[in-house]
Design a protein around this nucleic acid. Structure first.
Length: 925
DNA sequence: GCAAGGTC
């Protein structure tokens, strides 16, 4: 028995979600009620606190302990645990059960031991759906040993005295609806995750040469309702970049130098894509280059400090300021939290409760050698530096924003990242309670020949919070003084060119924002999903902390996209979230949601499997087929031809492979790889009821073959009743003459055409005969061919980036990598083909029509001036020597109105710094 | 060997 020295009264067992909450609750409740005793439970992390207390006037002996998050896990029954134990589609209805995993058994035993002698069980789990679900796990364990225990739920929104005392006097019933919502979520996640993961892993892993080093582990191509949409964000941005078509634009810049300094005036039209227009306007300005100041405006601008820090912001800022991964940030934050230096790091809350003693937190930091003086200044009423923190609008009702809880000037065991993160938390907190920075901005507008230009300068009047928040800056710049009506001659007036740039790859902070916006994962799990992309070789992170998909990640997304499925989009999760909400509000039952949602997902799964050729094709764009043959095709049932003589366990069936070639393979694949490949010239093959009377083991059913007459020698009959058992000499000869379809030619990325899929479509239609289209519920076609479905993004992506069919390829003149032909989809150039370099590092770009001939073709487009564009980085690798080299319509007048050479800019057509693109001799028209 | 969610 545990305990000892117990006081009298009713015995009440309190269980919190984590040890820290148990400690806080016990400390608060015991404060004025005599001694708080602590003793060990069976788990070393989860202590038991004991003290006396009165609940509604009734004296109680209180025991407060904790779990560590979920106590139980959901798993398939043993019979379904092994990957080859069942068809993955069975996982949508295979029995599942909840159990306490090995590492939680200690906690379970503590609960059992303590619950046995208590009359009440009070649940202090976090007040959210997961917390309610954990509450029911605790109830299950406790009532198993003490069926008569009275169950109560404490509702609290913060770990502060008043809340906790009130909660314990106003106990309520636990909410089964909340718990049910989580049960449904868990079951759906498990079933979808396991089925799709097994399916795509078994289908693709052995079928292609995927050469990622996996330190002895088998490569797993996992699917999950959070990880896949996360991958989707990465791939989508990558495609956006790939499909970006650089467009040349023109802008007029003006500068003015006086005794007081330089002002740079920007054209208020921004930039124009129409070269002719830009030139005309520019000529006007040059001919009458007198600037008149039309407006001088001065105003005060404030730059506000950030909101109080929550988990996502902590991760984003640590990534931006220190290039720390979100996963590492959370690990370091957890260390700091465990050691008591910062508050709980997993919180959505970004506003402080009115009751938080913010001054006390600042006070502690006054001792710090670096930011201590700032903290002191903050507390001086005369400084006027203090400001009550802003409210970010989020509150998880369980935890305050992340803030320092203990002073430290650095501990000996801290790594550099521990120092940095603690400093970030402290400085962020100090910034939150500081006045905004104040700046004086001057805006000057001028008029040159009717065109408006503007320049601005800023002087920082008070840095305020920026003094302590060294991670942010606010630039100041001075410009000469101008007065309205003043006239001057610009020092320079230039017509400059530029090209539109694609958006950058997603940074970790961007990715977190996407996930946050679309509800993918929780603040406590987002970093896990990001890490999973890297662990699964779906994405990589470059030295700038930006994410690109790997070939594997891109192929998987592309495969599902080509099926017309949004499995890689956040919608699925959004639908689930809506269902969960309905369950938690009691408007839908758990069973109802599970039934419909699993039914839909299973239909989707079955359809995806019928369309697996899309996944194969997408993979084939990037990977070579392995000679380990084609994956998980054992589920494509066919007609039985004979018992397998090799494994002597399964039948051999007639099938067509993904390229439409016939083969007879063992049902026991992949354990048994016995196969007979049939001639490539076959157009039809049907198993008959005729049995061969020579071949063994039998029965060996004969096959009615129909060959394509033009593909076999004239002395052979196109129709042939044959046997695959080895007795058929004609079949043997035709196999020798025509070959078989057992090898699919290897394809590098975009180097040759995808195999014709006409025959696969036929076979797919055949399979689809038995299953209704998921979209329109009609038979006769599969969802990917459903006429009711038009996938916008899919077709956009196709227009943008599908590898071409292999007839043309140009080497990149910058880096030599073969360029892929794409089709532009921007307003000015829709349908126009261009080549661009595949390499991320290289920005090579050229229009296809400029490669061959410059004449005509583009006249229908508004913009006719640009032939080959090339970004400034490509330097001298333009299309020199090719094309019309038509003389520019004007000369160097256009470079600078004052005749001054302009440095640091070069022609983006040929890279020559001596002229701009508008006068480039290499430009076409 | 599969998910995502708690938390140590």
């Amino acid at each position: 028995m545990s305990g000892g020295g117990r006081g009298g009264g009713m015995k009440v067992l309190h269980v919190a979600e984590k040890p820290s909450v148990a400690k806080s609750v016990a400390t608060i409740l015991s404060r004025n009620n005599g001694g708080l005793r602590t003793r060990e439970g069976r788990s070393r992390y989860n202590k038991i606190f004991e003290f006396s207390y009165s609940i509604n006037g009734r004296p109680c002996h209180m025991l407060v302990t904790s779990v560590t998050g979920h106590l139980m896990e959901l798993e398939f029954q043993d019979r379904y645990r092994k990957w080859h134990s069942c068809d993955p589609a069975d996982l949508f209805h295979a029995p599942v059960h909840k159990f306490v995993p090995e590492d939680k058994l200690d906690i379970k035993r503590t609960l059992e031991e303590e619950a046995r002698w208590c009359q009440w069980l009070v649940l202090w789990l976090d007040c959210d759906r997961e917390g309610e679900n954990i509450a029911f796990e605790v109830i299950e364990v406790c009532t198993a040993v003490n069926p008569h225990i009275t169950i109560k739920r404490a509702h609290f929104s913060a770990l502060i005295d008043r809340e906790i005392h009130e909660a314990v006097q106003r106990l309520v019933e636990p909410n089964k609806c909340f718990a049910d919502a989580v049960d449904a979520r868990q079951e759906i996640d498990l079933r979808i995750g396991a089925s799709f993961t097994r399916f795509q892993t078994m289908l693709l892993r052995d079928a292609f040469v995927i050469d990622f080093t996996t330190d002895d582990r088998n490569l797993v191509l996992s699917y999950g309702p959070c990880q896949f949409p996360t991958l989707g964000f990465v791939v989508e941005r990558y495609w956006e970049i790939q499909a970006h078509e650089p467009e040349e634009f023109w802008t007029i810049n003006c500068s003015h130098k006086s005794d007081e300094g330089i002002a740079t005036f920007n054209w208020m039209r921004g930039h124009l894509f129409d070269y002719t227009c830009a030139v005309i306007i520019y000529e006007m300005c040059v001919q009458e280059p007198i600037a008149t100041v039309t407006k001088v405006r001065q105003q005060e601008k404030l730059k506000y400090p950030p909101y109080p820090l929550n988990t996502i912001e902590l991760e984003k800022r640590a990534s931006r300021f220190f290039r720390m991964s979100s996963e590492h940030t959370m690990k370091v934050a957890e260390d700091l939290y465990q050691a008591g230096f910062i508050s709980y790091p997993r919180t959505e809350t970004d506003s402080f409760s009115q009751r938080t003693d913010l001054h006390a937190i600042v006070q502690e930091q006054q001792r710090h050698p670096v930011w201590g003086p700032y903290a002191q200044q903050l507390l001086e009423p005369g400084s006027g530096l203090w400001r009550n923190p802003g409210n970010g609008g989020h509150d998880d009702k369980a935890h305050p924003p992340i803030h320092p809880t203990k002073f430290s000037s650095g501990e000996s065991g801290w790594s550099q990242d521990h120092h940095r993160l603690y400093e970030l938390v402290v400085r962020h907190f100090l910034a939150c309670v500081s006045q905004p920075a104040v700046g004086a901005e001057t805006n000057v507008e001028i008029d040159i020949a009717g065109e408006l230009f503007s320049a601005s300068g800023r002087a920082i009047l008070a840095k305020n919070y920026l003094d302590v928040y060294r991670f942010e800056s606010w630039g100041s710049s001075t410009i000469p003084t101008y007065v309205s009506g003043q006239q001057f001659v610009p020092t320079s007036l230039t017509l400059d060119s530029g090209v539109t740039r694609p958006p950058p790859l997603l940074s970790e902070a961007d990715l977190l924002s996407c996930m946050d916006k679309e509800g993918i994962g929780t603040d406590a799990t987002m970093h896990d999903h990001i890490k999973k992309l890297l662990d699964r070789f779906y994405a990589t992170k470059d030295s700038n902390m930006r994410f690109s998909p790997t070939n594997l990640g891109e192929a998987l997304v592309m495969g599902y996209d080509d099926m017309g499925y949004k499995l890689w989009k956040p919608y699925l999760r959004a639908v689930m979230e809506r269902d969960m909400k309905a369950v938690s509000e009691g408007t839908k039952s758990k069973a109802e949601v599970l039934t419909t949602s699993l039914q839909q997902m299973k239909a989707c799964f079955v359809d995806a499997r019928l369309n697996k050729v899309k996944l194969f094709e997408a993979m084939a764009v990037f990977f070579e087929r392995s000679n380990r043959s084609g994956g998980d095709e054992q589920h494509a049932a066919g007609e039985v031809v004979r018992p397998c003589g090799l494994c002597q366990e399964s039948d051999m069936v007639l099938r067509r492979n993904r390229d439409g070639n016939f083969m007879v393979g063992c049902m026991g694949y992949p354990q048994c790889r016995n196969a007979v490949w049939l001639p490539g010239s076959l157009s039809e093959a049907v198993v008959t009821t005729n049995i061969c009377n020579t071949c063994t083991p039998g029965p060996v059913y004969m096959i009615q073959f129909k060959f394509r007459p033009l593909e076999i020698p004239p002395n052979y009959n196109a129709n042939h009743l044959g046997c695959i058992g080895g007795c058929d000499e004609i079949l043997r000869q035709l196999i020798e003459i025509c070959g078989t379809g057992s090898r699919i030619p290897a394809r590098g990325r975009g180097s040759s055409a995808p195999a014709s899929n006409v025959q696969q479509s036929n076979s797919r239609h055949g399979e689809a005969r038995h299953s209704a289209c998921i979209h329109c519920h009609q038979t006769g076609h599969s969802s990917s061919d459903c006429p009711s479905q038009v996938s916008g993004s899919r077709s956009a992506r196709r227009r943008g980036m599908n590898p071409q069919s292999g007839e043309l390829s140009v080497p990149c003149s910058t880096c030599g990598t073969p360029c892929i032909l794409r089709t532009a989809n921007t307003a000015n150039n829709r349908g126009r083909k261009f080549y661009s370099c595949q390499s991320q590092e290289c920005n090579f770009f050229v229009w296809e029509d400029n490669l061959n001939n410059v004449t005509g073709g583009n006249a229908q487009r508004g913009r006719t001036s640009v032939s080959a564009s090339n970004t400034s980085r490509s330097g001298d690798r333009g299309r020199g020597g090719r094309g019309g080299s038509r003389a520019a319509t004007a000369t160097a007048t256009f470079v600078s109105a004052t005749g001054e050479p302009v440095t640091g800019r070069r022609c983006f057509v040929c890279g020559d710094p001596s002229h701009f693109a508008n006068v480039c001799p290499n430009r076409g028209s």
